[in-house]
Design a protein around this nucleic acid. Structure first.
Length: 223
DNA sequence: TGCCAGGCCGGGT
DNA sequence: ACCCGGCATGGC
């Protein structure tokens, strides 16, 4: 038995989750209709406003290319289609890299991919050019239904401003710290990350000096 | 107008 | 093992 309260739904992390859930309610993430659409969105939204990424997906759909094989075959059209997502040449290459991996190893079949162990898939994804830890975890959690917590810039900012972790904590360390203090339920992992983004957009932007009205209470200036 | 957005890569130290 | 510049569009 490890420390008391570790998994007993009684930690600060879990209290924050409950506060956010009571404030905002369910967020219905990921905003995408199919696993493939979610994966594409996860790549397109890297360091980019979701709105801009979403437009790129709309363009891909309108072109009839929301399909792994079609998208790879028509890859020369992709940069123009995803221009609104920013970094569009880079992201077009990232999409190609994922598609080759996805088609080669799983025939573009998400069920087949989801059969493997979470850790195995995560390592494979991290080896794909353009997929880092956050994107890998977002794919695992929201497209494959695997229990892997998604850490993003808001997550680090919010928890460090609350003095719960250091501002320079590594991705994996923060992920473990959160997972260790949260009920091990996909539903909660799914909702918590979405809620963090929700509150972060409103109260915890990069140079936000103070967050007096944040539902989590007053935050310190600049973590 | 400048800063920010649901990161990641590659080269340098 | 870090550190940092580059990547790019659209909103406020």
């Amino acid at each position: 038995m490890r420390q008391a309260n570790t998994n007993l739904s009684n930690t600060t992390f879990h209290k924050i989750y409950k506060t956010l859930y009571k404030t905002y309610g369910p967020q219905h993430w990921w905003p995408g209709e199919t696993p493939f659409e979610i994966i594409i969105g996860a790549i397109l939204t890297q360091n980019t406003n979701w709105r801009n990424a979403s437009r790129a997906i709309t363009n891909i759909k309108a072109a009839g290319l929301l399909d792994p094989l079609k998208l790879l075959q028509q890859r020369r059209r992709v940069p123009a289609l995803i221009k609104t997502a920013g970094f569009y040449r880079t992201k077009a290459n990232y999409l190609n890299a994922f598609l080759e991996y996805y088609l080669t190893n799983y025939d573009g079949n998400v069920e087949k991919m989801a059969q493997k162990k979470t850790r195995t898939i995560r390592d494979e994804l991290l080896a794909v050019r353009g997929i880092g830890p956050e994107t890998a975890d977002a794919i695992l959690l929201y497209a494959l239904g695997k229990r892997s917590f998604v850490v993003d810039s808001y997550t680090r900012r919010i928890f460090s401003r609350h003095g719960m972790v250091g501002p320079d904590i590594s991705y994996e360390d923060l992920q473990h710290e959160i997972e260790r203090n949260l009920p091990k339920e996909i539903r909660i992992y799914n909702e918590f990350h979405a809620l963090i983004v929700r509150v972060g957009k409103e109260y915890c932007r990069k140079n936000e000096p103070l967050c007096n009205n944040c539902p989590l209470g007053k935050l310190l200036p600049r973590a």
